[in-house]
Design a binder for these strands. Structure first.
Length: 139
DNA sequence: GCCAACGTTGGC
DNA sequence: GCCAACGTTGGC
């Protein structure tokens, strides 16, 4: 199982909406690097749900429930999306400031390439971020 | 195929 | 609101 981080501007699509909709197609990605990451996702993979812009924090965890398929919002058919399901909110949101303050996380794609909207997260980083957010598996 | 100009994203 | 980073476009 792999781990990811997906970004959304809360003004456009927030964690609250994700929770309300339960399963949501993650569409609108128009970046080749991000597309590559989407295409690599498998059902059962987990991803942090990150609020960019106004909040800048990891606010929840989602699970991939459908692997990459053509993004219906792209007429060209050249882009892909996945379906994600809300798992649970982060007990304590992990802010970007906290992440940047942690030397062990400086390699995180989120930090290194801030404009990438779908980033991979290593298992080690995943665990560390879960710990920082007070995440208990199996809740 | 190179590179300058421009647009977009996202942190501050 | 500003600016840096990055992607895309278009002229040559």
């Amino acid at each position: 199982m792999a781990f990811w981080l997906i970004k959304s501007e809360p003004d456009a699509f927030s964690w609250d909406e994700q929770v309300a909709n339960v399963v949501e197609p993650w569409t609108g990605v128009r970046n080749h690097q991000a597309k590559k990451n989407l295409a690599a996702m498998q059902v059962g993979d987990r991803a942090f749900f990150y609020h960019s812009n106004v909040q800048r924090a990891i606010v929840g965890v989602v699970e991939v429930v459908r692997a990459a398929y053509p993004d219906p919002t792209a007429e060209s058919g050249a882009w892909v999306c996945v379906d994600v399901k809300a798992v649970a909110p982060m007990p304590t949101p992990v802010t970007l400031a906290q992440i940047k303050a942690e030397p062990a996380l400086e390699e995180l794609a989120l930090v290194r390439q801030s404009r990438l909207s779908v980033c991979p997260v290593s298992a080690d980083h995943w665990q560390m971020l879960c710990q920082m957010g007070g995440w208990k598996e199996g809740r």
